[in-house]
Design a protein around this nucleic acid. Sequence first.
DNA 1: TTAAATTTTTAGGCATGCCTAAATTATATA
DNA 2: TATATAATTTAGGCATGCCTAAAAATTTAA
Lengths: 161, 161
Amino acid sequence: MRKRTIENYVELVYDVQKGKKRVHTNDIASALNITPASVTEIFQKLSNEGYVSYKKYCGIKLTNKGLNVALKIKSKHSTLKEFLIILGIDRDIAEKDACEMEHILHPSTMDTVIKFVEVVKNCEITPFWLERLKEYVKTGKLSKCPEEFYELCKNYQKIKN
Amino acid sequence: MRKRTIENYVELVYDVQKGKKRVHTNDIASALNITPASVTEIFQKLSNEGYVSYKKYCGIKLTNKGLNVALKIKSKHSTLKEFLIILGIDRDIAEKDACEMEHILHPSTMDTVIKFVEVVKNCEITPFWLERLKEYVKTGKLSKCPEEFYELCKNYQKIKN
DNA sequence: TTAAATTTTTAGGCATGCCTAAATTATATA
DNA sequence: TATATAATTTAGGCATGCCTAAAAATTTAA
């Protein structure tokens, strides 16, 4: 199976599994609008590769290996979604784009995104540059950056060097 | 053909086409490390869908339709790469991640990214928040945001409301 | 508890994007 | 201008992730 496929299925299985003992073909099939027959095939492959334990006619359950993948992907997903929302992307679009990005970004890119989100969340108030960006996206007009900011930045940089 | 496949091939054809009249199977095959036979198949499909004009044994040339797709994708690519580089991602990783992101992001997300890059490039000096982020990524330590910044932000927001 | 309904699996197919090997066409050179 | 060489195409295969139709197992309910 492709990395992407594994990640998507394992992630979904994780979500569906909550509050259930086992996940059945129908659960996945209806969630994805595909046929149960296709899901059976996926279950068998996920099982062969050790992501789930599978018993015919009884559905599946994530193994530790599968659980780890699921947790990692879910963590990436929520960080990326937060990241996009911070930038001003609509929640549902952020959700979809995060769904794609979670599979492709390099670990070091993910690391930067994680820290970006952390930095912004750490701010007591919405950062100025972010306000300006959102305004620009909304109105199409980019306001000029006030002189005081430049001064402050310059001073700060002098101090550091 | 899948959207992603079309975009990838058309983009590559555009790059290879520069300074040549026609692009040959071998050009693409060697660039992608796949066999010329596979490229022939791709050429035929690209041609069927109107992205290139194709004459047997003579290679292909982008049509206007293909050129438009190529230009759009290349524009997305370079914006995304710039975006990632601004955030502090290494150039080669930025290159690879941009290659993936260019196919998946929602237009409104792209719009925000475009404006983000514009806003940062518009700054006379590297924004303070970006300095802090990069430092955090590099050292693992997040410095506290100076009080003056908060004050300035607050004042600015009062003025606007 | 046995028949009906539902769920799951099997078997066989299909499109995609790749492959190899062999045939065809173009080109370079003697 | 032949002919050897190189490039391209055709033909047939393969893995993936999906499909349908039919078979098998399970569950429900009479």
